[in-house]
Structures are given as structure tokens and as C-alpha cells.
Amino acid sequence: MAILQKGISVLSDSPHIEEPVVAPQINIVKNGEVLCPKDRMLHIEDVIKEYPTSEGSKIVLDNVDLRVAAGEFVALVGPSGCGKSTLLRLILGQEEATSGNIYLDGERIGHPDERRGIVYQKYTLFPNLSVLDNILLGYRWGLSFTEWRRQKQDIRARAIDYLKIANLEEHKDKYPHQLSGGQQQRAAVLQALIKDPKILMMDEPFGALDPGSRERMQVFLLEQWERTGKTIFFVTHDLEEAVFLATRVIVLSQHYTDGRDVPLRGARVVCDITTGKRGVAASTKSKLDPKFAQTIEHIRDRGFQPSHLYHVTQFDLSHPDSFHTVSPEELEGTK
């Protein structure tokens, strides 16, 4: 494949050296261009996540590098247990990376805040609030009590309009448990979008839905994406869903080799490709294209085959925003 090694160009220090508290001087160069955290909406470099275990610690994410441009629909896939949701929680600020840096719009990310929206698979809405009140939260918490009282009627009307988008208007006074799974997820997507986050994170949001409502949700999500132009970071284990929805598919996997002599590797980005389409119409059409199945096959080959490993220098990082840093010891033994 011609794209091999396209993304590799730099050697950073060994990833195991502790990062200073201040953002370090970034001098990652890709094809002669200096990469800066401000270049893209989301910039992740050298991220390592270890969890303590009874026998020491287990590395889940091993030197993850990633850049995501604004407006992109990114799907993150990978074998089960590879750390997809861990990476999502790191970006969200729900957990902290052991080392490495994550920037959102050039700023270091911190605890969860309004810059990032989230839709989970479970616990999508607050059970004690009606659908309308759930939708209103984003407005309500942003306003002081007096301001809220003054604008309440206006905002309510706007929220009800909003619910029409998701055909939830007639259900506005119901509690979440009275809605179907698909309706709950639609409300959750709206709830998150109302806050106008820089990036919308989604953690297997449609994983618990039946195939029919799942497909409807996918189309709904694409419509919302087209309407708002949001950057979406979508974690799923379903390759078909990923290729159907996303403009860019990132494969996180522990199935690869490098020069290090370790029995278990933490996952890193082994494949990062563009699907070459945007929008609902294009997505619907793409399903019929033979390339659709080929892309899925390619992804499966790249990250899901423990028997067929790619070396760290052979990853398919063909997406233009893709980059990765490789330490000397990872390269050892490279031909």
C-alpha cells in the first residue's frame, strides 16, 4: 500500500518520561510542517493511560496521537477492551491521562465542562425531570435565577420548537422512563446540542437499541450533524455504523507489533482513514457502494486480527490530519 508510513516523521522522547506540568514545547514535524496544538479543534499527543492492577499496572492506551478538525464526524472503533471508552473519558475530562496532553481548541482540557457535550448509552437523561425540563437544563444552568425567571416563557417556547425536530413534542411532559430507548436518545442528543459544545462526544449511544430504531437514530444524528456542523466524536464497536456515519474512521487496537519486547501492548491508533463522504444523502448512497464493504474489510484487517499484526511503521494513517510519534525503542528491530 502506498500510504504506508506517510504519517510518521518524528521521534519524540520516550513516552515514559514524566511530562512537565506546563505544556512542553511542541516540535512535532510532519512532512516538513510543524504541528501545533492550535492547528485543529482537538489535539491529542503521546497520551498514555495506565490502570493499577493487582500485579502492578496495565497500560490501556499506549502513546495515542490524534488531531481532529472542526466539523469532522469521527468514529472511533476497535476490538473490545481496547480502550475506546477510556480515550473518550480522557477527552471528556472524566478521567486523567497518566501522561501526555490533550488540547481542545488550543487549550488544555480540564474537568468536564460545557466545551464538551456527552451522550452515553445508559443514563441518558435525568430520571426525575420531564423531557422538556431535561432539554431546558442547558439553558437554565447558564442563567442567574432572575434572568431565568424573565426569559423562562421565551426559552420554553424555543425548547418546544426544538423538540419538534425530534418528534418529541407530544412527549414533552413525560418522564424519561415512559419513553422508548430511541426517543430517550433523541432527547439526549438535543439536550447536549442545546449547550452548543465545541465537540459532541458519544459513547456507543445506539448500542442498546433494536436494529430498526438504531437506523432511524443514525439518520437523525446525521441530520443534526448537518444542521449544526458540530464536531462529533463517536465511539462504537459496530464497524458498519462507523463507516456509515463518519467522515473519518479511527481504529484503536492493541493488535500491532513494535520493537519493544513486551507481552501485552496498550492500544494505539493503528488505522486512520477518511470515508470520503459528507451528509445524510451521501451516507445513504455509500451503503450501496462496493467500497463500503471494502472499507469495513480494510478496517477489520488493520485492527481486529490478532493473527495478522502490522508493525508500528506500517499503520494506515492516510487521513490528512493523522500523525503519530514513535520512540526509538519502539522502532528497534525495524528493518
Binding site: 468536564p112 465542562d113 460545557e114 435525568f126 444552568w141
Partner: peptide, 14 residues
Amino acid sequence: PEELLVKARTLGAS
């Protein structure tokens, strides 16, 4: 569930 608390923070709760 921690998810609900995180979600509340992303929706702007102090």
C-alpha cells in the same frame, strides 16, 4: 451513576 454527574457538568451545572 457517575455518568449523570459528568453530564450535568457538561450541561453547565456548577
